[in-house]
Computed example of a mutant assay.
Amino acid sequence: MAIILNIETATKNCSVSLANDGITIACKELATAHFSHAEKLHVFITELLEENNIQYAHLEAVAISQGPGSYTGLRIGVSSAKGLCYALNIPLIAIDTLQLLAQQITIESGSILPMIDARRREVFSSIYDPNYNQIRATQAEIIDENSYQEINETIHLVGDGAGKFKDTLTDPKFVFHDTVVYPSANEMSSLSFEKFQNSEFVDVAYFEPFYLKDFLLVK
C-alpha cells in the first residue's frame, strides 16, 4: 500500500489529493481569482489527513505539479512539498502540469492541446496524443489566427488559456472543452503512483519548478 499526497498549485486552483496505490481517496480544491494557495494549502492537507484517518507518518511520498504556471503558486506548492519530504524523510515526485490538464479529457482521435493562461495573448501549452503521450514540447507561445495551421486533425483545447481564443481559433477542427479549466491533483494519483513504483524521484534539495519563463505572476 502506497499512500501519496498530491499537490497542484500551478494555476489559480489550489488542489490537494490523497491517493492509495494510484486511486484517489479524497480531493480538496478551490479556484479563486486572487489565488488562495498560501491560506488554503496546509488547511486542505490537514483536513484530508484527519478526515481519512491518515497520519503524516503514513505517507510514502509527496507529488508536486512542477509547472509551467504561476511563479508564486509553484513556489508555494514546491516549498510545502519539500518541507514535508524533509520532515518525513520520504521522496518527492514531480508531475508535468500540462499533462495533468490533458488527462482531464478522453478522446478517441486527434490531439489534446492543454493551455495555461500566461497573460495577454500568451499561453503555456503542449500537445498530446489520445494516449497522453507528448508529441510537442512545452512552450510559451502567442496565439493568433494562424496558430496550429500545420495540424490537420481535430484539436481538443482545455484549460484557462484556451477560452481566450474562441474568437481567434475558429476553424472547425478546434474543439473547446469549456468545463476543463484548471489542472487538478485528482489526475495526479495514477501518475504519481507509476513514478513511485519506478522510483522516479527528484532531488528534494535541488529540485526547482519548471517556470518556463524567468518570472511569471499570473493575475
Rank of each mutant, 00 (worst) to 15 (best):
G77V: 03
P130K: 13
E39I: 12
F215R: 10
K12Q: 07
P130E: 05
E60Y: 03
T46G: 13
M115K: 08
L84H: 10
E122D: 15
S184P: 04
Q197S: 09
D21F: 07
R120W: 00
K40S: 03
I155W: 03
S192V: 07
G163N: 10
G83A: 15
P183S: 07
E108G: 11
E8D: 14
A38H: 08
V16H: 12
V218L: 08
H34Y: 13
N6C: 11
Q103R: 15
N53K: 13
L212D: 02
V123M: 07
G161V: 08
Y206C: 00
F210M: 00
Y71A: 08
F215S: 14
Q66Y: 02
T168K: 05
S126D: 04
E208F: 10
T179H: 15
I127M: 09
S125R: 03
S189D: 04
A81Y: 10
Y56A: 09
L49H: 07
Q197G: 01
V204N: 02
I25R: 04
Q139S: 13
S65D: 06
P68K: 04
S109Q: 15
Y56P: 06
Y86T: 12
I116D: 01
A57K: 14
D214C: 00
D171K: 15
L49E: 02
E122T: 14
H37C: 08
I112Q: 12
E39R: 15
F35C: 08
E51Y: 02
P172A: 07
L18H: 11
Y86E: 11
K28N: 14
C14K: 01
F176W: 09
R136D: 07
D171Y: 13
Y182T: 04
I25K: 05
P68V: 05
T32R: 07
N152S: 11
L98C: 13
L216T: 05
T154E: 14
P183R: 04
I7C: 13
S147Y: 12
L92R: 02
D178P: 06
L101R: 03
A185T: 00
T97F: 03
A33L: 14
E194L: 09
E60R: 12
C27Q: 06
H177W: 15
D203G: 03
M188G: 01
E150R: 12
N186R: 09
M188I: 03
A31M: 04
T170Q: 12
L100H: 06
P130C: 03
N152F: 09
F174V: 05
A63G: 10
L48Q: 04
L113Q: 04
D129W: 06
L5P: 03
N89L: 09
P91F: 11
V62H: 03
A87V: 10
F174W: 02
I135T: 12
E108A: 13
H37I: 10
L216C: 02
I105D: 05
G69A: 04
I54G: 02
A140Y: 07
Y148L: 08
L101F: 07
V43K: 09
L169M: 13
G77S: 07
G69M: 02
S199D: 10
F215N: 13
Y128Q: 06
